[in-house]
Design a binder for these strands. Structure first.
Lengths: 194, 194
DNA sequence: CGATTTTTTGAATCATATCAACGTACGTGG
DNA sequence: CCACGTACGTTGATATGATTCAAAAAATCG
């Protein structure tokens, strides 16, 4: 299936789009092809685009003062990925976005998207609902991250993102869970022995 | 200043409202008065309203299987508070909302708000932007929560929410930060000795 | 003021981090 | 297609930091 069709189907699951809007989406969302390990956004640059993943897998991560990586989000086909703070405020990004596999991203500039909102209120509604959902999902992660033991957080991760578990190296999952690779290895050992 | 004016000013910081919408807001957002410790929402009930705090201070918290409280959010005048997942999906709430001081909340039912979105697209835009910002703020909390040492998370909290620091007991701040009250007490001691 | 809640302190315990070494898998160039 | 190198995963020993439990001190409320 072509990338734009995937995007249109994705949006149509939430709001209905008439044909003129569908053409606008096809026109204004520009595909970008990334090779494995290629960077989509660097910390320090401003994120000028909203981005939808049509193919592949990416990660969103930060590098702290001690050169430690912390993964905030994995994203695969059908997900959105961005440094939203940078995008919304047009300030330098606070994290990196990198392809973990060869990937295709559809992106639209903020200017274009803002124009689209006026032409297509349904699209604005789509983003409202999308952000509501994203907020809720993140809230769940935040509260579970602090209350549940690691074993449980890890199995939650596996259940919630089974595709990602397969495609991403273990040390990155450890980073996402906020523990060291050694600890995750031991957690897995404990779990498999039961 | 009257509660509705506060809400209207709050919304007007982000989108412009014409007078007819302002009247609708005055009509449809219903004030609710809460005494200190009074519950606004119980875990297990469905949250049918969107809620804006006109006065006071509330908290949003979970109680886990071990009867441990985990505070997800504090909110004061000018903030919104809800169990969004419950509100959006009309399923039982996964956490509690309680007044920490005598408080006034303006609330509107989901039905009414959905109707308002059709009458006032500016309002829908307001919520889109609001959720974007909320998402970003929560994302920051999530990533800093996992990367920064506790001392730093505590001073970030103090800097970000100076009002709340004053008004909320220390053991609740510990709960928000995801540590025990004893640990927070020791962190404070270490910090003050420098 | 007395009662209750909150904060502090101490000692023992537990979980994860850290550091270092070893094992394994993968893919690239010869 | 094999061999080597690099990246990833596992394991062990030790260190660190937060938790737990218990009790005392301080603050708050009626």
């Amino acid at each position: 299936m072509d990338s734009h069709q995937l995007l249109i189907d994705h949006i149509s699951e939430i709001v209905s789009l008439d044909d003129s809007i569908k053409s606008l989406i096809r026109e204004r969302f520009i595909p970008r092809h990334l090779k494995k390990k290629e960077m989509l956004l660097y910390k320090g640059d401003v994120s000028h685009h909203m981005r939808f993943i049509a193919e592949g897998c990416l990660r969103n991560y930060n590098i702290d003062e001690n050169a430690q990586e912390h993964i905030l989000q994995f994203a695969v086909k059908g997900w959105w990925i961005n440094d939203l703070y940078s995008y919304l405020t047009e300030t330098p990004a606070t994290f990196f976005i990198q392809a973990l596999e060869d990937s295709v991203v559809l992106q639209i500039s903020k200017n274009e998207l803002t124009k689209l909102f006026d032409e297509a209120p349904a699209l604005e509604r789509f983003y409202r609902i999308k952000f509501e959902n994203a907020y809720v999902a993140l809230q769940n992660r935040t509260i579970h991250g602090m209350s549940k033991p690691i074993e449980e957080r890890y199995s939650d991760f596996r259940n919630t993102y089974p595709e990602i578990e397969q495609r991403v190296p273990q040390f990155m999952i450890a980073s996402y869970l906020g523990i060291t690779p050694e600890s995750l290895s031991r957690v897995r050992k404990r779990m498999s022995s039961k």
